[in-house]
Design a protein around this nucleic acid. Sequence first.
DNA 1: TTGTATGCGTTATCAG
DNA 2: CTGATAACGCATACAA
Lengths: 348, 348
Amino acid sequence: MSIEESKKAARLRKPTIATVAKHAGVAVSTVSRFLNGHYVSKDARARLAEVIEELGYVRSWTARNLSLGLRGCVGVVVDSIQDLWFTQLLAGIEEELSTRDTSLMLASLELSGRYDPRIVQQWIRERRVDGVILVKSQRRERALVHECVETNLPTVMVAPDESVSRAHVVRCDNRAAGAAVAQHLANLGHRRIAFAGGPEHSVDTRQRLAGLRDGLEERGIRLDPKRVSFLASYEADAGCQFASEILKAPFEFTALVTGNDAIALGFMRIAQQHGVRIPERISVVGFDDVPEGALLWPGLTTVAQPTREMGRAACQKLFEAISDPGEQQVLVYPVDLVVRESTAPPQR
Amino acid sequence: MSIEESKKAARLRKPTIATVAKHAGVAVSTVSRFLNGHYVSKDARARLAEVIEELGYVRSWTARNLSLGLRGCVGVVVDSIQDLWFTQLLAGIEEELSTRDTSLMLASLELSGRYDPRIVQQWIRERRVDGVILVKSQRRERALVHECVETNLPTVMVAPDESVSRAHVVRCDNRAAGAAVAQHLANLGHRRIAFAGGPEHSVDTRQRLAGLRDGLEERGIRLDPKRVSFLASYEADAGCQFASEILKAPFEFTALVTGNDAIALGFMRIAQQHGVRIPERISVVGFDDVPEGALLWPGLTTVAQPTREMGRAACQKLFEAISDPGEQQVLVYPVDLVVRESTAPPQR
DNA sequence: TTGTATGCGTTATCAG
DNA sequence: CTGATAACGCATACAA
């Protein structure tokens, strides 16, 4: 009776590894080995493939993870999910994740206007994620990075603002990016060029500036230190503020290179609001190539990164680190100048 | 010996429910009940809280999910992760999720330029998610929606383009939005108004148009059917294309209401490129209030939705549906007109 | 190569 | 109210 009942129940319930084993006439361990690509005889292999297909068996990732002591989930941390550049990175991450049966936990460090890393610290302490991808981590995230590394939590950093060890790093070739901009502006005939970067300590900003400066010098153009500024953040607001400052007095330069697209967009808004014509009066260049830069008029000349690919790579590296915590690598991706309407030869 | 060893191992290993039980002198089931807020005597409760704190015990969500037959993961489906509006919704979803120990799987239906719902179908078939949130699902997603509903997969739809049953729906008050725009434009003095919506079958577009039309009529203004168009999509490209069409010949209207912000942005880019001044020659209004609309000059007048809140609500509804598959609800959120620089009184 | 037995950490059932 | 114990579905020593 109870046997009958359990049999019926088994028929209704969705098939497990045991069901497959029974139908194929092998042991569960054999099925498991088959599923994981370990050694199984040709015969068994064929039979199992058939039975699995027939039964419509799908493995339980929850059970697998429990058994392996994994969470089947990675964390992605960023200042704000609405970061224009991050969205593209996320697309790459998603793409890679979808091939891996791994889910995602997202954390904005600045969700409701103020900085709060507690969610991420909880992840780390409770080991809720198998690893984390830290996107554009800044100085204030130092403690967080430290926690990750101390806990031996596999960690990949994308475009970190400080150099780090004990974590994979994925970033773009900022120096080349700066150099490309230098060449473009020099070719257009600009001689008086200004730079408005992100925070001064930021690696991205420093490298882009270095590339720009060197590139200009190669062409006999000096980047006047008086025309180099560092803003408080990489956000559009900072660009707006900078524009307001600049426009208070007459200014001399004919081209402005900003730390990223968001800053450039903010600058352009305020400049245009004040009647400053772009690119006639001033050419503007950004970095990142966020989609929005192509959506306004004039379109923003910028330097594109293979952002989506970098997202995929970050994910791949993370999985490598999870399955085999070995050497830490630094991946540097090439960049591409994208010329739109915000740059033109200087008027005079 | 082996006892000693196992003891040592237990000390090193991180504490489980069993460790807690031993230390507190109760059975594991009692600990479980305590953890889940079921009935436990006051004494035991106090002791357990203490022991848990002391041991730094954290429960295994993997094991819990296995036991409960859950995945601890919800799916979020959208055309493109880079949808300007979606990003804000995602912030709300994330916010809610972070309080629930649930992770996320993201799927773009149009990841590499072409439509491919297979990833989502896999989720459904393999029951990899406890529920899904379908964002802005369109006509072509009908089959997908059908699959979700047929499988009894808890489903919440946010701003679906078609009306659906057997799923929770979260959307904004589109009619009120259209009416607000009507009032704004009428007050400014516009009489000749055009509308460029999304796809004609889209609920959002139809409701916004209806609200606009009625609002105008109340004020004695007729929305000329000749000035009503429907675009192929809600994306900026569609807006660009529409602008190119319009600008080929002289046009009569002084204000354009678009189906959403993305369309408006695309339109404005091309219009400005052609030297059409906004808002002097033509006022432009969008819907959604994506952050980018505030980032350009002139800033886009639009109708804001409580997008983040809607994300949270969608998530909450989903969890309700997961734990108790009851009545399907429709949640409608109020909207807010946001006036920026893209609208002004008509010149003549 | 294959099968047996045990562990992974919880929850739920059912006596006490 | 509490305690034993059987699921949950899979992976892996270890023995065969």
